[in-house]
Amino acid sequence: MKKTIRVTVNGISRNDEVEPRLLLIHYLRERLGLTGPHIGCETSLCGACTVEIDGKAVKSCSVFAVQADGRNVLTIEGLASNGHLHPVQEAFWNEHGLQCGFCTPGMIMASKQLLERNSNPTEGEIRHGIEGNLCRCTGYQHIVNAVKAAAAKIGA
């Protein structure tokens, strides 16, 4: 009972046959080899699997691949262009916004989304904006710094 989906991932259009129950995160990671988004909980609580669908950040562990049919998906792998890091990526690097790096792809996608909605967020707004993404290493402080730095860079 497989379904055919047509989905554009990081700018590349694909046709694939998938089981209806296949999760988007498994489709991305195991079918397409895009292992940047991670699985930390399978219950949409940790946010490590965050990707964008049609410009909106979603937790891909709670979306079926078939739900992405006809849509545009952006993963962490598609963020840098022509070898240039996205300002949020660059800021995470400069500000030491990561340690083990496991939550980072999701955290960066959530931060990018946050800045698209609010280009100059306060500390409180940043914390609220990334609340759906868990990090056990950094205590979030350097992530807050990174988002502030990225905002300044993008706004400049």
């Binding site: 990671r29 195991e30 080899g33 895009l34 292992t35 940047g36 988004p37 991670h38 699985i39 993963t75 962490i76 792998e77 963020l79 840098a80 890091l85 990526q89 995470f92 690097w93 400069n94 030491h96 990561l98 790096g101 496991f102 980072t104 792809p105 960066i108």
Partner: peptide, 21 residues
């Protein structure tokens, strides 16, 4: 000094166990 390990981690190109095929 910013970390040498970060470029692979911020671009999704690091390899964790579950990434191994």
């Amino acid at each position: 000094i910013r970390r040498k390990e970060d470029p692979r981690l911020i671009t999704g190109t690091a390899t964790y166990v579950d990434d191994i095929q």
